[in-house]
Nucleic acid binder design. Sequence first.
DNA 1: TGGTTGTTTGGTAATATCGGCAAATAGCCA
DNA 2: TGGCTATTTGCCGATATTACCAAACAACCA
Lengths: 106, 106
Amino acid sequence: MDIKYKMRLETKAKIIKAMAHPTRLFIVEELSRKSHCVCELTAMIGADTSTVSKHLSILKAAGIVQDEKRGLQVWYQLKVPCILNFFGCIEQVMKSKAKEQIALMG
Amino acid sequence: MDIKYKMRLETKAKIIKAMAHPTRLFIVEELSRKSHCVCELTAMIGADTSTVSKHLSILKAAGIVQDEKRGLQVWYQLKVPCILNFFGCIEQVMKSKAKEQIALMG
DNA sequence: TGGTTGTTTGGTAATATCGGCAAATAGCCA
DNA sequence: TGGCTATTTGCCGATATTACCAAACAACCA
């Protein structure tokens, strides 16, 4: 495991970690449908504005979303739609786990 | 955001979080090539056996890998190959970020 | 310019994650 | 059975993440 490969793994892990939070997952799913301003997302999530803003900055730093200032508001949009393909796989993991649960009970 | 959807998001986040670590990412990549026992992975990673074992148990709990006892050794294999599709997207994010860096430098 | 609204940043306390050591456990073999 | 090897579990200090409040910033408008 050379240093270069190690750094690559760390970079990848950071990007994945950016999505490893329920709120940020929600944001990504919502932005996959359409762009939203921080105020809209805050209303949907029901947390403090600063909390939502920080989640967005994490997603932005990871390169997953991008922002654009429009007057007073800041609008966010999904930058990498391929992220969505991934969700299908996650669902598959969930289904597989559910099946095992049932098998264990049967 | 009803409670059921919230729980679903938390479950998904847990699965993603399981991969959001360089060592666990390495394990997933290695297991995508072939099965390995804990001892092999430990040698490749160069950390304490207990540390590697814990990473494996996190991946197992998430439903990403499965284990099988063979004598003294425990062999792990990737359970959900679709996870690999995701890595392509992560690389895309990395490339997009790299491009921006270059653009910024002019 | 001063006030208002939308967003980000700084500080802080609660909680979670991580890695290594030591001890426990499991399976093999003499 | 006792010893040996491979793995897991318990514990603990160090570090990271999270959410909220308060304060700072930015852009608009009267």
